[in-house]
Simulated scan of single mutants.
Amino acid sequence: MNRFLSNITNRIDAKGRVSVPAPFRSVLAERKIGELFCFQDFVFPAISAGGPELLDRFERQIVADDPFSPEANQMSLLIHGGGVYMKLDAEGRLMITDFIRDFTGITTDVTFVGRADHFQLWEPNTFQAAQAEARRVRGLGGGRT
């Protein structure tokens, strides 16, 4: 397995840490990702997290455009100004910092959401609502009512 798939909700401990789900840690290990690049998602109230290739992808886009253009400057503002590096501790936990809490509204639980080459951190109820809305917009039934 070399992609981040599914969604899993874990509780934040008393010290503000949350265990990254084992399937996600396996992908991180397989890809040899030791440090996560995390940024505020452009569309959703979620933090996106991935390896250095995630940051590289955005930087290639900035360079492909005129790096002095308003679009490139806006992308840099979002990616560089809205991004941080984070590391898991020895037990595979991630600190849920104010950077994460303030942008997502996360309080006691975190939903980890696979997005193929990266994953996201969501407030659980917000994720459920966004997923239900995506199903509705796409005309897909099912799920809980």
Rank of each mutant, 00 (worst) to 15 (best):
F4A: 01
L5V: 06
I8T: 11
I8W: 11
I8E: 13
I8F: 13
N10L: 05
V18L: 05
P21N: 01
P21T: 00
S26W: 06
L28Y: 01
A29V: 10
E30V: 07
L36T: 03
C38D: 06
D41G: 10
F42W: 13
V43K: 13
F44N: 15
F44E: 15
A46N: 06
A46F: 04
I47R: 04
S48Y: 09
L54G: 03
E59W: 10
E59N: 11
R60I: 06
I62T: 05
I62C: 07
A64M: 07
A64I: 09
N73K: 13
N73Y: 10
L77H: 11
L78P: 03
I79D: 00
G81T: 00
G81F: 06
G83S: 03
M86L: 12
L88W: 02
D89W: 03
A90C: 10
A90K: 15
A90H: 12
G92Q: 04
R93S: 03
D98P: 09
F99R: 02
D102A: 15
G105H: 01
D109I: 03
V110Q: 00
V110E: 00
T111R: 07
G114V: 00
G114Q: 01
A116P: 09
Q120F: 04
L121F: 05
W122G: 00
N125Y: 11
F127M: 06
Q131H: 14
R135Q: 09
R136A: 14
R136N: 12
R136Q: 10
R138S: 12
G139V: 11
G139E: 08
L140R: 15
G142F: 10
G142R: 08
